Every structure is written in C-alpha cells, then in structure tokens.
Simulated assay, not measured.
Amino acid sequence: MSAVNTPSGTSAAPARRDAEATKAAILRAARHLLARHAHADITLKAVAERAGVSPPLILKYFGNKDALFARVMSFEEDAEALLAGPLEDLGRHMVRHVVVGQRERGADPVLRIVFAPLHGDHGDILRTNFRAQVTERLAARLTGPDAAVRAELALAALLGLGVMFGIARGRGVRAMPVEDIVDRYGPTVQAHLTP
C-alpha cells in the first residue's frame, strides 16, 4: 500500500504514526493521573503537561474530558493484549505481560483497577468495565466447573504480583529476570485457568 501524498509532497504515513503516538501519550498521561488522583481533580491542562502536548490537541483527538476518561476507564484494549495467549499457556503469558509492562512502561494498565475508589461513579465504572472486559472475558475462555470463580482467582493472583512488583516494589521480585518470574509464578496463575 503506497502512502498518500499531501499537497507539500510529503507522505501522510508519518503523520498518522505521529498522531497515534500522540494519542498513546495522552492516554498514558491520563491513566497515570487517574491512578493517583480523583477524576474530578484532573484537568485537561494537567494531562496535556504530562503528555507533552497542548490541551487543544487533546480536544482534537478525544473531543472532551469525559470522552478521554471514558477511553481511559475502558480495559478493552488492555484485556486484548493480556488474554492473547493460548489457554494452555495463558498463565505464563499473563505473568510475562504484567512484568514486562512494569519493566518497560513502569505500569500495566490492567493494574489501574487496584486504584479504583470504593465510592463514586469513577470507581463504579472501572469495576463494571473490569468485570465485563477482563474477568468475564477470561471466564468465557475457560472450560470446566466454576469458570467465573477461577477467572477471578487467576486475576487476583496476577494483580497481587503486579502490586508486589510495581507498587510495593519487592526487591527480590524486581531483581529476578522476567523468565524466572514467569517460570515460578506462571503455574500459580495457570492452576486456576486449567483445573
């Protein structure tokens, strides 16, 4: 597929890549702030500063603050990557996904459920989205009895690892090579996925 030329004769493909990178930076910034502050306390200016863009650019890409945070509070894309492995090796895949996310990006977007406030619309939306987009989606892939409970237990184990690695910053776990963590902890998660 060839790139479309713009009137100045330049390719439009780099502009699309830049736009996608900018959108990703805005989403990362909004997730970062949402993990640390109440939704009502976050301004578009704060998101823009963290992302290194102007507030009008956020409006261009997302429309308004509510639309931006609706996207941020969705786990759809994150669940896609987290659950992308084959069922017989999904525990290892999920552990690797969380640990690599922590090491390369300093966070895993699925872990933002840990920061969901107990009360208020923001927390309710995050919990509802997590249940529908992550827990129920995982349960639908499982066979055998108690699939819903097993999905919740597998995710609880995974979130616990994420908390120890990224929030509690356990020295022993953080010092281990990724594949060593996968080898030791993957079976713990997998035990709930395949009875």
Rank of each mutant, 00 (worst) to 15 (best):
S2I: 12
A3K: 10
A3Y: 11
P7D: 12
S8G: 07
S11N: 09
A12M: 09
P14V: 04
A15V: 14
R16V: 13
D18R: 13
A19P: 05
E20N: 12
T22P: 01
T22N: 06
T22S: 08
A24P: 04
A24C: 09
A25V: 04
R28D: 05
R31Y: 06
H32G: 05
H32P: 03
H32C: 07
R36S: 05
H37G: 00
H37Q: 15
A40R: 13
D41K: 05
D41C: 04
T43S: 15
L44G: 01
V47P: 00
A48G: 03
E49M: 02
E49L: 05
A51H: 00
P55L: 02
P56V: 09
P56F: 08
P56N: 07
L59Y: 09
K60N: 15
F62W: 04
G63C: 06
G63A: 08
N64G: 06
K65P: 02
K65A: 06
A67W: 07
F69M: 04
A70R: 07
R71E: 15
F75I: 06
F75N: 01
E76D: 15
D78L: 04
A79C: 07
E80C: 07
A81F: 13
A81M: 12
L83Q: 04
A84M: 09
G85S: 04
G85F: 02
P86V: 11
L87V: 15
D89G: 08
G91Y: 00
R92A: 15
V95I: 05
V95R: 00
V95H: 00
R96K: 13
H97K: 06
V100F: 03
V100Y: 00
R103D: 05
E104A: 13
E104K: 08
G106V: 07
P109C: 07
V110C: 05
R112E: 14
R112H: 13
R112M: 15
I113Y: 03
F115G: 02
A116G: 10
P117D: 10
P117E: 11
H119F: 12
H119W: 11
D121C: 06
H122M: 11
D124H: 11
R127G: 03
R127N: 06
R127F: 03
T128R: 12
Q133H: 09
Q133C: 10
Q133L: 09
T135V: 12
T135H: 09
R137D: 07
L138C: 03
A139C: 05
A139D: 04
A139M: 03
A140R: 10
A140E: 13
R141Q: 14
R141G: 05
L142F: 07
G144P: 02
P145T: 14
P145F: 07
D146H: 07
R150K: 13
A151M: 04
L153I: 06
A154V: 00
L158G: 02
G160T: 06
I167S: 01
A168F: 14
R171T: 14
R171W: 09
V173I: 15
V173P: 01
R174H: 09
R174L: 12
P177T: 12
E179R: 03
D180H: 09
D180R: 11
V182E: 02
V182A: 01
V182N: 02
R184D: 13
T188M: 12
T188C: 11
V189S: 03
V189C: 03
Q190E: 07
L193T: 02
T194P: 02
T194W: 12
T194H: 10
P195Y: 10
